Amino acid sequence: MRPALDQGEARPSAVKDLFTGVGYLLRGIGWTARNPAQWLFGLIPALIVLAAYAAGLVTLAFYLGDLAGWVTPFADGWSDAARAGTHVVAGIAIYGTAVFLAVLTFTAVTLLVGDPFYEAIAVRVEESQGGAPPDPDVPLAVQIGRAIKDALVLGLVAVLFGVVFFAAGFLPVVGQTVVPVVAALVSGYYLAGELTSIALERRGLLRKERFARLKANRALSVGFGAATFVVFLIPLGAVFAMPGAVAGATLLARERLADGPAVTGGHLGVAGPN
């Protein structure tokens, strides 16, 4: 009987951790609301990257009809209604996948472009909580190289998941209901990994160990990341919420992840990239 009780106890813990993760995003946004100068400072790199991504998505929308026809050659001989319906589904899947990839890679690219900006915000957050750890004794060139490598690895992971979700988007009903939810959870896990990297790297933790700690706190990480993902889907949400997301991730890393993997209840999430 005891194992069943343990499983029952794990579920409330997982739910609690999910909401606690959401709370870290709200705390981060609250911190930037109390420090508007830091919020404005953090908008600069996000606006730069947004302009590039917006141009890409607008271009994709312009050619979406042609792309939908290109990926569905099997429908060429169908009736006009069936072919048009297939193209609509394909177009939604293509654009949805593009948005998914944009949201997932936007954070990595923005953190890469705006590293000095968000490093400064993270330090301010840490100082407001009692003090920031010292700068890592790592040459700048090595730090930049690691950041680029991490961005490429996470970008590859995003593309692989994007292909899977694109294919799953063609499934009737499931593709329009279950798949978006799973995409948000998976995206949230990796967004949490990207956003907490600033505070954890400052503590000397590289990508593999960072994701080990996220995995040990899966529900907490997914709660924070999925909430961030949903906010980033709101028009301009990724820009305006980015400084707050960095602040919230810094609090999450400082309070729950920095001291090592303390396994919490929950079974959400997937393993991080090696």
Rank of each mutant, 00 (worst) to 15 (best):
V230Q: 03
S221T: 15
A219Q: 04
R256T: 04
G130A: 10
P235C: 09
G266S: 10
P12L: 15
A168R: 04
F74T: 05
A158N: 02
A226C: 11
L60W: 06
P136E: 09
D137W: 04
G65D: 15
Q176F: 09
L67G: 04
V230S: 03
P133L: 13
L206D: 15
D6R: 15
V103I: 14
G21F: 07
L191F: 05
V109Q: 02
T97W: 03
G65A: 13
Q38F: 07
D137G: 03
A102I: 00
R213W: 04
V246K: 04
V182A: 13
V230A: 15
A238Q: 15
I29K: 06
R207E: 11
F19K: 07
P134T: 03
V159S: 02
L220Y: 05
P116W: 09
V142K: 15
G266W: 08
A247E: 06
E209Q: 14
Y190G: 00
L111R: 05
V174G: 05
Y190M: 03
L268W: 08
V173H: 05
V179I: 14
V138E: 14
A249D: 05
W78G: 02
P261Q: 09
D259S: 14
D115F: 08
P139H: 10
V142P: 02
L101V: 13
A75D: 09
A249K: 03
A151S: 14
V186I: 15
S221V: 09
A158K: 04
G204M: 03
Q38A: 13
G23C: 08
L233M: 14
W78R: 11
P134C: 09
F161T: 01
F117N: 08
L236W: 08
A212G: 11
V125C: 05
L236R: 05
D259Q: 15
F170K: 02
R83N: 06
G114C: 07
L251N: 03
L101W: 02
P36L: 11
R124W: 00
V157M: 12
V159F: 10
R203P: 00
P180C: 09
D66V: 12
I48C: 05
A98H: 04
A98M: 07
L251W: 02
D135N: 12
R34L: 13
G114T: 06
F100Q: 04
L25Y: 05
V153Y: 00
T250D: 07
D66C: 01
L64I: 11
V186L: 10
A37E: 10
W39V: 00
G130S: 11
V159Y: 01
A51L: 13
Y95C: 01
R146H: 12
R83V: 00
A120H: 14
L251P: 00
V159K: 03
A241S: 13
A52N: 00
G225D: 05
L25M: 12
